[in-house]
Simulated assay, not measured.
Amino acid sequence: MHALLDAISRLERPTDAQRVFHGRGGLHPGSEQWSLDAYPPVWLLTSHQPVSDSDLDTVLEALRERWSVLAPSEPLNCVFQLRQEARSETRVLSGDVPDPHTVSEGPVRFRVHLPRGLNHGLFLDMAAGRQWVRDRMRAQPGARVLNLFAYTCAFSVVAMQAGASQVVNVDMAGGALNIGKQNHALNGLGQGASFLPHDIFSSWGKLRRSGPHDLVIVDPPAYQKGSFVAEKDYVRLMRRLPDLLAPGGHAMLCLNSTKLETSFLLDLMQVAAPSLRFLERLPNPPAFDDASPERALKVLIFQAPSDGPGDDEGNPGHVP
């Protein structure tokens, strides 16, 4: 874990939520199991393999030493999570965790919850996707957005802040949507967003009537038993996109799977909705660089045909 300790020795004090060490990307031999994230004022240390108390103490001591330089008058707040497949064990190693815990990403604020659950309320690897949504909404003020698998509605908050007139957030997890409502209130967003705790596959009629949508965001889990399995369910979503999108509208399709590559989405789209044109794959944040980019998060942008000439953007893209 030399690379992790070296990264800790060079830490700067963060202001926004961000990843600061990404062993999972395979670029740091010997530290592949580790990641370190900043959710100010808390550090989140994660291991994807069991770790000895000795190794954990070594990392914690390195954090304490660096923090004493960065913030000598402040306690070190550190949470450790052991993640194995779909299970996690989380405990506070040092200091305290605010409750409620609010973090920032640029101009946006989000509620997070580190000590409980497998996920923490904000997916840091999706920062570039949120920036793309922000830029898209600034270029198209008043746009209508459909946010599928909305989780805590981070995309919705960004879209509304940047000028969207309406966002429909859909997720089966009512608890996550409640946090999404808090995120909207936290950012002073009072109107324009709706929150539907529905099964997407049983709600197509309602979703179609809420449109047409200038942007449809699809960010499902790669695998969630009883809810979504990418290999069989993604194509069902794609078939609906032409009916949900306004002429010239955009679709953002996300896939966080180490096994399924970009070609999985591109090939399915050619079968399910060939009228949608592929524009680009968004680059992931530099902190999430991966030795094998196809194992990392894939975020692809497509565009529906327009009613008239000159409305489509860009040229057919290529996979980097």
Rank of each mutant, 00 (worst) to 15 (best):
W132R: 10
W132G: 00
D135I: 05
R136F: 15
M137L: 15
R138T: 11
R138Y: 03
A139R: 14
Q140K: 14
P141K: 13
G142T: 07
A143C: 14
R144F: 03
R144K: 15
V145P: 00
L146Q: 04
L146F: 06
L148Y: 07
A150N: 06
Y151P: 01
T152Y: 10
C153T: 11
C153W: 05
F155Y: 14
S156I: 10
S156F: 06
S156Y: 05
S156E: 04
V157T: 13
V158A: 01
V158N: 01
M160N: 01
A162E: 10
A162M: 07
A162G: 02
A162K: 04
G163I: 12
A164L: 05
A164I: 07
A164W: 02
A164G: 02
S165D: 11
V168A: 10
V168N: 01
N169I: 09
V170C: 11
D171P: 02
D171H: 06
M172F: 07
A176W: 02
L177D: 05
N178I: 00
I179H: 00
G180S: 08
Q182T: 14
N183C: 10
H184Q: 14
A185G: 06
L186M: 09
G188T: 08
L189H: 06
L189G: 00
G190A: 15
Q191G: 02
Q191E: 15
G192T: 09
G192W: 09
G192C: 06
F195T: 06
F195R: 04
F195H: 13
L196S: 09
P197V: 13
P197K: 14
H198S: 06
H198G: 00
D199E: 14
D199V: 12
F201P: 01
F201S: 07
S202F: 05
S202N: 14
S203L: 10
S203R: 10
S203D: 11
W204Q: 03
W204K: 03
G205A: 15
L207H: 05
L207K: 04
L207C: 04
S210N: 03
G211M: 11
G211E: 10
H213Q: 03
H213L: 03
D214L: 05
D214Y: 03
D214C: 05
L215D: 03
L215N: 02
L215C: 11
V216F: 06
V216H: 04
I217M: 13
V218A: 13
V218C: 14
P220Q: 11
P220H: 11
P221H: 09
A222D: 15
Q224L: 13
K225P: 00
K225G: 00
K225H: 12
K225N: 08
G226E: 12
G226A: 11
G226L: 12
S227D: 12
F228K: 08
V229A: 13
A230T: 12
E231R: 14
K232M: 08
K232C: 04
D233T: 09
Y234I: 08
L237Q: 05
R239S: 08
R240K: 15
L241D: 01
P242W: 09
P242C: 09
